[in-house]
């Protein structure tokens, strides 16, 4: 462990120059979250690389200035990320990750198997009608199940729950190493037909829609696998028009910091 941590730490130079391949970067960013001196070094080295950039400045064509300024005027800005602190109905103490115990893992896998059984039953009933599309559905569901099982089975899987402001609980099981998580929610409030729950990743670089939560099955919504998590991302749930929105249009009803 000591050797690999030291090995990771030397990546800091390559990291601030965006010279680290994706797989290494995930490992390094995980290392960063638990290492304040490393984050301090990243800050300092970033200032140095910024100067490398400043040293090769090129004056842009004058037209670009007006183009950029007027494009900005037409572009809606993202709100700051504050929901967790501002709303007193949300969890008062910071949520904590808990290690996924064997028992919890088993119960999740059992729940997953139950979900798969429901899907399978639906498939069998509809089989004669839409054979091809159902097969598609089955295979993508199967892939989903594999992905879920992979996260739940990860040796570093941790679980976090958070209250949803409008009712219900959100649960995240995450593998920091794989940068993947599984999201489920239980007892979510029933929405009008025109509205649906949409899941987002919000980070320093913007908001990314993850997907619409299928209407709850016996009080459970999801499970949904979220991949490609990057440093600073938070998982956010909002209520949107039923077809989904490219940007959140209502305030978050739950915000979960992912600690990456």
């Amino acid at each position: 462990m000591g050797g690999s941590r030291a090995g990771l730490h030397t990546l800091v130079g390559a990291y601030v120059m965006d010279a680290v391949p994706d797989a290494d970067r995930a490992a390094f960013e995980r290392h960063l979250t638990g290492c304040e001196p490393c984050r301090e070094e990243v800050r300092g080295l970033r200032e140095a690389t910024a100067r490398l950039g400043a040293a090769v400045a090129i004056e842009p064509r004058p037209q670009l200035r007006d183009q950029t300024l007027s494009a900005a005027r037409r572009l809606r800005q993202l709100p700051p990320l504050v929901a967790q602190r501002r709303d007193p109905r949300m969890a008062r103490r910071p949520a904590r990750w808990t290690r996924l115990s064997g028992a919890v893992r088993q119960s999740w896998l059992a729940r997953l198997a139950a979900t798969a059984a429901v899907i399978l039953a639906v498939v069998v009933v509809g089989l004669s009608l839409h054979l091809t599309s159902m097969q598609h559905r089955l295979s993508s569901d199967e892939q989903g199940s594999h992905a879920i099982a992979a996260v739940l089975g990860a040796s570093d899987a941790k679980m976090m729950t958070a209250k949803v402001r409008t009712g219900g609980m959100a649960t995240v099981v995450m593998s920091h190493r794989a940068r993947e998580l599984v999201f489920t929610a239980s007892k979510l409030s029933v929405l009008p037909q025109s509205r649906a729950y949409e899941l987002w990743l919000m980070g320093p670089a913007g908001d990314k829609p993850v997907g619409m939560l299928a209407p709850a099955h016996g009080g459970m919504a999801g499970p949904m696998v979220v991949r490609g998590l990057v440093h600073g991302d938070r998982l956010v749930l909002t209520v949107e028009p039923v077809g989904g929105s490219p940007q959140p249009t209502t305030s978050p009803i739950v915000v979960i910091g992912l600690g990456i």
């Binding site: 670009l64 183009q67 950029t68 900005a72 572009l75 800005q77 993202l78 980070g203 670089a205 913007g206």
Partner: peptide, 13 residues
């Protein structure tokens, strides 16, 4: 231009 617009969009963050 993309970077400057990203700065505009995400300045609050």
């Amino acid at each position: 231009q993309e970077v400057l617009l990203e700065v505009w969009r995400t300045a609050a963050r």
